[in-house]
Every structure is written in C-alpha cells, then in structure tokens.
C-alpha cells in the first residue's frame, strides 16, 4: 500500500492578538459595499414589481381599439408564465352584424398565450388558417367577451384579433418567467 500523500503543517492563517483568526477586513469592506448595492437593487426590483413592470400592475395594463372603436381589447402588455389572467374584448354595437359577432383570434393567443376558457361560450367555433373564428349570438350591444389566459413558456408573442369587416388589432405580449 503506498503512503498517503502528506504535507507539513504551515501556520498560514493571519493573526490578531496572537490568535489565528484569518480576518480579512479589506475583503469584508468590499463585500459590504456589494451588499449595499444588492439591497438597493432589491428595492428597485420591489418598486418595479409594485408598479407592474413585471406584469400584474399599473404599468402592464393596456388597452387598444380599432380605429372606429367597434372593438376594444383590454390586455396585459406583460404576462407571467403559468399565471392566470384575463383578456377582455369590448364589442361596440357597430361590430354586431345580423345579430352575430364574428371574431377571429390568432393562434398567438390561443396557443402561445394559452387561452384556457372563453366566456360566454361561442355559438360556433370554426377553425381557420392561423387561428379560430368564434361566432356569438347577440341580443343587444355593447357587450363583452372574456378570454382566460395562462401562458406556459416565457417569451415574446404576437397575437391578432379581428372582427368581420374591421381592421385587425395586432399586439405583442411579453411573457416573463
């Protein structure tokens, strides 16, 4: 059996009052400065979160509508992954045609942003290229439709919503982890 590897004992630990302490005040001062910066950063993060820079707050709320205000969409500019949220479609009377509202929702919203439920239930949902077309029966307008979202993966996703005979609404949503 070979001898175990050995090394002579060298007293290398710095001394304070003849006691081996190994204090490194110069390093510690640097660390304290770093700590202050970190806490400052933490406060900034908390303030950003309170303002809604990471979603679910004042900053992330957004609204956009078609030029003729037939359709207005309330959505979150910034979403959080695996967190439920609601996207609301406001339909003006001018978007109702023949007692129906026909609205096209792109796959960006259905798949990427994870549309879970649409309420009220549409009378007809028809698959079309790049999305789904919903048809709602309408007695009177204005009215609203809510889409529950729950994005799975972080990333930046574009979506498109369009009612029959109107300009489309195109927006991008940033999903943070």
């Amino acid at each position: 059996m070979p001898d175990p590897e050995t090394n002579p004992v060298v007293d290398s630990v710095p001394k304070v009052n003849e006691i081996a302490v190994g204090e490194d005040l110069a390093f510690q001062r640097k660390w304290w400065r770093f700590e202050r910066i970190i806490w400052l950063l933490f406060v900034v993060i908390l303030v950003c979160d309170l303002l809604g820079l990471f979603g679910r707050g004042w900053f992330s709320k957004a609204k956009c509508s078609t030029p003729d205000h037939a359709l207005t969409v309330d959505y979150q500019r910034i979403e959080r992954a695996s967190t439920p949220s609601t996207l609301t479609l406001h339909f003006d009377p001018s978007s109702v045609q023949d007692r129906h509202i026909v609205v096209f929702v792109s796959n960006g919203l259905i798949k990427s942003l994870g549309a879970r439920r649409i309420s009220p239930q549409p009378a007809i949902s028809a698959l079309s290229e790049g999305g789904v077309t919903y048809t709602f029966d309408v007695r009177s307008a204005p009215t609203i439709v809510e889409i529950r979202l729950q994005p799975q993966m972080p990333g930046e996703y574009a979506f498109r919503i369009q009612t029959a005979g109107n300009a489309p609404i195109r927006r991008t949503v940033l999903v943070v982890p």
Binding site: F54, R80, A81, S82, T83, V176
Partner: peptide, 16 residues
C-alpha cells in the same frame, strides 16, 4: 401567481 417573478419578489420582500 406561481411564476418565478412573483416568488422572487416575495422572497426579496421577506428578506428585506
């Protein structure tokens, strides 16, 4: 809200 952002903020708040 079980997102990383939310939980990170909660941890920071508690630590703070």
């Amino acid at each position: 809200d079980r997102s990383v952002t939310n939980c990170t903020c909660a941890v920071i708040a508690v630590g703070f």
